[in-house]
Design a protein around this nucleic acid. Structure first.
Lengths: 218, 218
DNA sequence: ACTTCGATCAACCAAAAGGTTGATCCTGGC
DNA sequence: GCCAGGATCAACCTTTTGGTTGATCGAAGT
């Protein structure tokens, strides 16, 4: 059986070198190409397709400095922009906020791994992704399980979106403009968010959402 | 002349593998050991000293998941805890916030590099550090210059205290009670804070203060 | 077909936050 | 001694939020 051909997408040369070295040590996995942002990744996929050497798995970072971010790139890959069939995309990133995970899954990612994972775990994930299965980091999986067990009122995607804008310091008017909705709708969403988080003002909502890793802060 | 012996300190196996592979490709540089947090770094330094094989440069990440963080570790190394003479510590991290840079420099770091730097730049920095010189990433240097030209108004201790309670989600009344002052005073402080941070509401103040790492969040 | 639920909006009122002016007190420098 | 600046408070007013009620629409599930 042929090696699994992987495309690395990460803006850090150090990380790419690490993955190259790490994956190169494993039998059955070959690094076919590398890209430093989403745009380069799409180009590389198209090029390799044209050569008749399609990649089997894309290993993608989420936050990518200047260029196209990982979620956008994943969406476009899954939309077939770089050729059909679109390869599975495995997210490999540093953070595990709900917002990131949700966005990645919605974009069509078939896995979500964390960069502090041991090599063996990363290898397994690549194999799973290549086999068409999904692969979640234990931390991520645990969070999702806990969410199911605990009737912790789940926030909708839209609500998380609002929360993120909230955390940037925007007022209701600003949020409304960003999302192309009315201020009234923003207020309604906020009331729902407050209810679900058990708070009664925006700063407390940010505090709780940060603590529960619903949104990410650096 | 002997190779420069480097100690890698980073909690991500992927990054360590990357640096190992990257530095290994350069003549004159050898990776003597690795550590996944500050505590392990101190231990490794002491051990290598005892063996009569001291390291010449420590390559240190700042944010290190669970264990001792990079600033603390740097301070302890420079204090001679892992043997004299203390080797130069070169910070290699992802973020370049003012607070991180200042903290690292105060702790005694002899350089501050960013992880998205090209390999050659990292190599040069290691060589500089080994030679006893300082090495700043261009981005970092630019920020420091801008900071000197444009000194940001400093927040008073009391104001930072306010900011921390603010980030908790407390209202003005709650903050007043916590600090045993009147609501009027809280408002006055807030107006000053908004002015210094260049914002006009509490959530934006939290956002900016977080970004500038004036306050800590997790 | 019916229900549920997320997303959208409106109108209204109460509460909180923001902005301004001005004042006192104390401490540390010059 | 004088001045600057931090910390404290008050009164007043405007704007923003928060809370409530009620409504429409569409998609997903029963």
């Amino acid at each position: 059986m042929n090696d699994i051909r992987v495309l690395l997408v990460d803006d850090h040369p150090v990380v790419r070198a690490g993955l190259r070295a790490m994956l190169g040590d494993f039998d059955g996995i070959t690094v076919a190409a590398e890209a430093s942002d989403g745009g380069a990744a799409l180009a590389a996929l198209a090029r390799l397709n044209a050569l008749g050497e399609p990649v089997d798995v894309v290993l993608m970072d989420l936050q990518m400095g200047a260029g196209m971010d990982g979620v956008t790139a994943t969406g476009r890959i899954k939309a077939g922009e770089a050729g059909q069939p679109a390869p599975p995309v495995l997210i490999l990133t540093t953070y595990d906020s709900d917002a990131d995970i949700l966005a990645a899954v919605e974009a069509g990612a078939s896995g979500y791994m964390l960069k502090d994972a041991p090599p063996e775990q990363i290898r397994q994930s690549v194999l799973s992704a290549a086999a068409g299965q999904t692969a979640l980091a234990p931390e991520v999986a645990a969070r999702l399980m806990g969410r199911i067990r605990n009737p912790a009122p789940a926030l909708s995607g839209r609500e998380i979106q609002l929360l993120e804008l909230l955390a940037t310091g925007l007022g209701n008017r600003g949020i409304a403009k960003q999302l192309f909705i009315s201020e009234a709708t923003v207020k309604t969403h906020l009331v729902h968010i407050y209810g679900k988080l058990g708070v009664d003002n925006r700063t407390a909502a940010i505090a709780v959402a940060t603590q529960r890793r619903i949104i990410r802060r650096f």
